[in-house]
Amino acid sequence: MTLPPAPRSAEFCPAEEGDHMNAELLRRLREITDEERALLQKKDGIRRERYSSDGEFLVDSGRVIGPGRLMDVSTHTRFAYFPRHRHNYVEIMYVCEGSITHILEGEKTVVLHEGDLLFLNQSCRHEILPAGEGDIGVNIIVLPQFFHTAFGMLGEGNIMSDFLLHSLTREYPTPLSLQFHTADLVPVQNLIENLIWSAVYRDEPDGRLNQLTMGLLLLQLLRHTESLSAESVGMDKCVLRALRYIEEHYALASLEEFALSESRPMAEISRAIHRETGSTFKELLQKKRFQEAVAMLQNTSIPVADVAFAVGYSNTSYFHRRFREIYGMSPRDCRLHAREDPHK
């Protein structure tokens, strides 16, 4: 749905303490749209052809995203039942007020409350029960290639963002839904409000700021895996915790220590990590360590032996040998190459 136009003179005022959204912005989102007014008058449900053109109810990105854009934001249409459907894009729903109920894959009921985020990949089929006037939701509609751009703008080296990127954008994914409870996460709330604000007030003509904001939002969510709901489908929360553990403790991390913290057998965790990521715990840990080693070599003058120790390798001979196998050059050559061409 297209958001109603707003005057260009609107000024952003931060929400007061205890509020989850700017009052003026929320007032705009509560307005009844033309489509909703027609639904209230005719009571004949949504017009399927508005969203889809084929036999399967596949919501087409070309009908809901503006020309030339990789992402768009729209209000969720209230007063209507959305029958079971999927999308050819990634959909993110955020509930600003009230609650909105989804039924995932024909069997799992998920109720989103104020401050909840729901990510749905392209294979996840869902239906949405009618929302009332006080149930305000926003759809963030994202083409898969957008995530590559968003994460690329933030740089490389985060195995958690790599994993989420793979899960959301792979060509033939299994159904995946991720539900986050973010009402008490102020940084996340601020980023979402920025996205909604720019959509309502047409404040971001080329989309680049929204891309960066979305990248920051995803990274914030990955920092707060505790906000991921048990209602999520197609994702083992233990795997996300393992990836976060590697990110934060790569120098001393071990599968044995992580398994003890989870009170689960190492073999069980190892299988879950490999199933979800395609890599073993050891491979992910090594990838993170060498990414950090490269960053230190290129951006500091710390001796190579100290770099090796800092990322978790006490055996410098092994570090040198593996570094050359991975990058085709020695750690010293990596540092010299970066100094010769600082833009690489």
Rank of each mutant, 00 (worst) to 15 (best):
T2Y: 08
S9Y: 09
P14N: 07
A15E: 07
E16Q: 10
E17D: 09
M21I: 07
A23L: 02
L26C: 11
L26P: 07
L29Y: 11
I32E: 15
E36N: 03
L39D: 09
D54N: 14
S61Y: 14
I65Y: 06
I65W: 06
G68E: 02
H76I: 15
F79R: 04
E91R: 12
I92A: 07
Y94K: 04
T101H: 04
E107G: 13
E107T: 14
K108G: 00
V110M: 13
H113W: 02
L118C: 12
P130M: 01
F151K: 09
E156S: 12
L165S: 05
T169E: 04
L176C: 00
E193N: 02
N194E: 15
N194V: 07
D206V: 10
G207H: 05
Q220T: 02
S227I: 01
A230Y: 15
L243Q: 02
Y245L: 06
E247P: 00
L252F: 14
L255G: 03
A267H: 10
I269N: 09
E276S: 14
S279Y: 07
T280S: 15
T280P: 06
E283W: 04
I302Y: 03
I302T: 14
P303F: 01
A310G: 02
V311E: 01
V311P: 05
S314L: 11
S317D: 13
F319W: 04
R324I: 01
I326N: 00
Y327K: 01
Y327S: 04
M329K: 04
R332I: 12
A338T: 01
R339P: 00
E340L: 12
